[in-house]
């Protein structure tokens, strides 16, 4: 089973600690939602967990091996990463875009090896992109682009998927769709860590919540135990509570605290 462990992560920028001694351990399947106010350090934590940012202090290890010691392509094969609002820089086709997710497995020259073709087809089918396969990505709608990027992140079948605000900029329908897909992946055994801005979506879909406040973990656990009125007041400065259960859960904001 895959184990991603963060120990005492600290990242400083301009004398300020953006992450301050964050430790967390991730094992096997389950959707982990990282929540927190703007500037709480969510994106920084995800970048460090993904091995894209070196912490000033602390270490992230994958199955006991520090990320810094894992070769870039080897890490990329095991861990997919989706930044916030990803964009394509050229009007390449959806198929090409998804194929880029196989970059860490491709030889330096030449086209897609035949044995990787099924993965490509599967990722395109799984994300319902068959109809858009040859369409330039710059002409996709926001929801379609998000699906294409997800397919790109999944095509290499990584054990870990780290996504920064996967619902940012999406309308409710597409946001729900994205979360459903991420939870589906998690239930199928993949480790999925996503920062989530929308607390209702987090409450409904996440199996575990990590709450960040001023660079520190202030809560880590199941939805019921973490999303308490006290915690919401602390990190968002609002009076709110979770009502309902499971897929019916929602966050009821009463007033600013």
């Amino acid at each position: 089973m895959t184990i991603l462990a963060a120990e005492n992560l600290t990242v400083r920028r301009g004398g300020r600690a953006i992450l301050d001694g964050v430790s967390a351990r991730f094992e096997g399947g389950g959707l982990v939602a990282v929540i927190g106010a703007n500037g709480a350090g969510k994106s920084t934590l995800l970048a460090v967990l993904a091995g894209l940012l070196k912490p000033d202090d602390g270490v992230v290890s994958l199955d006991g091996e520090p990320l810094a010691r894992i070769e870039g392509r080897a890490l990329a094969r095991r861990r997919g990463f989706l930044p916030q609002s990803p964009r394509a820089e050229w009007p390449i086709s959806v198929e090409r875009l998804v194929m880029l997710g196989l970059t860490p497995s491709l030889p330096a020259f030449g086209d897609l090896p035949a044995e990787l073709k099924p993965s490509l087809d599967r990722a395109i089918a799984d994300c319902d992109l068959e109809a858009h396969r040859d369409q330039p990505v710059t002409t996709l709608s926001g929801g379609e682009l998000a699906r294409a990027m997800l397919a790109r992140a999944l095509v290499g079948e990584p054990e870990i998927l780290i996504a920064d605000e996967p619902m940012a900029g999406l309308d409710p329908r597409h946001a729900l769709d994205s979360m459903t897909r991420l939870r589906g992946l998690a239930l199928a055994g993949r480790m999925v860590i996503a920062s989530v801005h929308d607390l209702t979506l987090a409450a409904r879909f996440a199996g575990r919540i990590i709450a960040l406040h001023q660079g520190r973990v202030v809560a880590d656990g199941a939805v019921r135990e973490t999303l308490t009125p006290d915690l919401l007041r602390l990190i968002f400065a609002v009076e709110a509570q979770v009502r309902g259960e499971g897929q019916g859960a929602y966050v009821d904001f009463a007033a600013p605290a």
């Binding site: 993904a50 894209l52 070769e71 870039g72 392509r73 080897a74 890490l75 990329a76 094969r77 861990r79 997919g80 990463f81 989706l82 930044p83 990803p86 964009r87 394509a88 820089e89 050229w90 390449i92 875009l97 880029l100 997710g101 970059t103 860490p104 491709l106 330096a108 020259f109 790109r152």
Partner: peptide, 19 residues
């Protein structure tokens, strides 16, 4: 070539793909 292709996704995604 391979790196330039990955850069079509922007620098962050390219880096995340091991480039």
């Amino acid at each position: 070539g391979r790196g330039l292709d990955a850069l079509a996704l922007g620098e962050v995604q390219a880096a995340s793909l091991g480039v």
